[in-house]
Nucleic acid binder design. Structure first.
Lengths: 133, 133
DNA sequence: AATAAAATAGTAATCGTTATTGTTATTAGA
DNA sequence: TCTAATAACAATAACGATTACTATTTTATT
């Protein structure tokens, strides 16, 4: 039951994340935020990111390799992850919300959401390996 | 180009994983294997699990919270993850292999696979929270 | 302004995992 | 079967990502 108090750092972290359309890690965001708050602590970044995730204001992405990433876009959508360089891109396709119901038929627990990640090689990395071949 | 040599430890690790139908972490597997190999090292377990993943003989699951898990069933299938207790269950539904093609239309990179995890509360945890309410 | 509580910066600690090193086991060839 | 080459090992150190701790500072409330 602890009341939430305003903090300039938290506001900045959220604004920063909203402004960008890549999917930065906590550390990437930390480096960027230090331009405005040179003394901000990495722990503060983590704490506030997790807080914002719990509040449902941002999303956390666990792509299976490398550190977690964060997404200011909370609308249901999917991501593509490049196995070569680790880049994460939004897929501008609609998420299949009825997938939850479809899966529910096969599950004794109660399903409330799902996450889908597509894997492969991004355009950039495809080009690179074509050149070096 | 290094040739693969047989090892009793690797065989045991794979057999152990194949025998169980839960989705153990490296550490869980390590504890179990120590009954047969009391001196086995956790590093050996990790090394061989990763090797088997690279060979395509087992799968690694990154469910988004907690340590990675391993699955001896390499057939395309999905998983349900309980947010309360962290348990991971197989969903006996067919995986949507045409999802890759559907997503490919929206992606400049080359997609070769996808992973879907369903989240919610498992039967056990639902019962528990009903009791304590 | 005074007080209480939350948030902070700085730092230490933790966790999961990988890398290193000297030794042992497996394999191929003489 | 012996030997040499090398992969795999156990033990341990190191690492990266994340969380926990603590004394201080901010924010909100009287």
């Amino acid at each position: 039951m602890k009341a939430l108090k305003y903090s300039r750092q938290r506001e900045c972290i959220k604004d920063c994340l909203m402004r960008r359309h890549d999917h930065p890690t906590a550390d990437t965001l930390y480096m960027s935020i230090r331009e405005e708050f040179p003394n901000i602590s990495l722990g503060t970044v983590y704490r506030n990111l997790n807080l914002l995730v719990d509040l449902g204001e941002i999303r956390k992405l666990s792509c299976g390799s490398g550190p977690d990433r964060f997404d200011g876009d909370t609308s249901p959508h999917y991501h593509f992850v490049c196995r070569e360089c680790g880049e994460v891109e939004d897929l501008p396709m609609e998420a299949f919300q009825d997938l939850n119901q479809a899966a529910q038929r096969y599950c004794s627990g109660r399903i409330d959401s799902h996450a889908t990640y597509f894997y492969g090689t991004c355009e950039n990395c495809s080009k690179k390996s074509a050149q070096s071949a």
